[in-house]
Deep mutational scan, measured.
Amino acid sequence: MLYRITVRNADGEKLEIVVEMSEDEVRALAEELRKAGYEVRVEPIPEGEEP
């Protein structure tokens, strides 16, 4: 499935990426980023919607 991941650092800089991963993989990635001090938001992209 496609997911949009938005990551912000302490300075407020934002990075937005689209990935194709399983829900478990995305959850693990988000958890690791949060542990590293980043603010993370994950949104699933519905099938048929443009990323």
Rank of each mutant, 00 (worst) to 15 (best):
P51R: 02
A36Q: 10
P46F: 11
E25W: 05
E47M: 15
E32T: 15
A36C: 04
V26H: 00
D24R: 03
D24G: 09
E43R: 07
E43K: 05
R27I: 10
V26N: 00
A30N: 01
V19T: 04
L29F: 15
E43Q: 11
R4K: 04
S22P: 07
E20G: 05
A28H: 11
E16P: 03
E13V: 15
S22V: 07
L33I: 05
K14C: 03
R34S: 06
M21H: 02
R41M: 06
E43P: 00
P44H: 11
L29S: 01
E31L: 15
G12P: 01
R8V: 11
V18D: 03
E49V: 11
E47D: 13
I5Q: 00
I45S: 06
E25L: 09
G48W: 10
E47I: 12
E16M: 12
V18L: 10
E49F: 12
R41D: 05
E47L: 10
E23P: 10
E13Q: 13
E32K: 15
A28T: 10
N9G: 09
V18N: 04
P44G: 07
T6H: 09
V26T: 03
I45N: 07
G12I: 04
G48I: 12
E47G: 13
Y3P: 00
K14E: 12
A28Q: 11
N9E: 02
A28S: 10
A30L: 11
P46N: 11
A30G: 04
T6K: 07
E39Q: 13
A28R: 10
E31P: 00
V7S: 05
L29V: 07
D11Y: 12
A10Y: 14
I45L: 12
E13Y: 15
G48T: 14
A30F: 05
V19A: 06
V26F: 02
K14N: 06
G12L: 04
R34N: 04
N9R: 15
E23I: 08
I17H: 03
P51T: 09
M21V: 06
L2M: 14
A10G: 12
G48M: 14
E31D: 06
E39R: 12
K35R: 14
N9V: 07
E49H: 11
E25G: 13
Y38D: 02
Y3N: 01
E23R: 05
I5R: 00
G48D: 07
A30S: 10
L15C: 07
P44Q: 11
E32V: 15
E13K: 13
R34D: 02
E49L: 14
V26M: 07
K35M: 08
G48V: 15
M1A: 05
R4E: 01
D11F: 10
D24H: 10
P46E: 09
Y38W: 07
R8K: 12
E32N: 14
L33T: 01
V26K: 00
V18T: 06
I5W: 01
E23F: 09
V26A: 11
M1T: 08
V40T: 02
E43I: 12
T6M: 13
G37A: 02
E47R: 12
R8I: 07
G12H: 04
D11P: 03
A28K: 07
G37H: 04
V18C: 04
L2K: 11
A10M: 08
E16F: 14
V40R: 00
M21A: 06
E25C: 04
E25Y: 06
M1R: 08
S22K: 11
V40C: 02
K35P: 00
A28N: 09
A10Q: 09
R8W: 15
D24L: 15
S22M: 11
D24V: 11
A36S: 10
T6F: 15
Y3Q: 01
V19G: 04
G48K: 12
V7Y: 15
Y38H: 04
R41Q: 09
R34A: 05
P51W: 01
I45T: 05
E20A: 07
A30C: 04
R27Y: 12
E23N: 08
L2C: 09
D11V: 12
M21C: 03
R8N: 04
E13T: 12
R34H: 04
E23K: 09
E50A: 14
L15K: 14
E16Y: 14
P46K: 13
S22Y: 09
L2Y: 15
A10W: 12
N9T: 07
Y3H: 03
E25H: 08
A36W: 15
S22R: 08
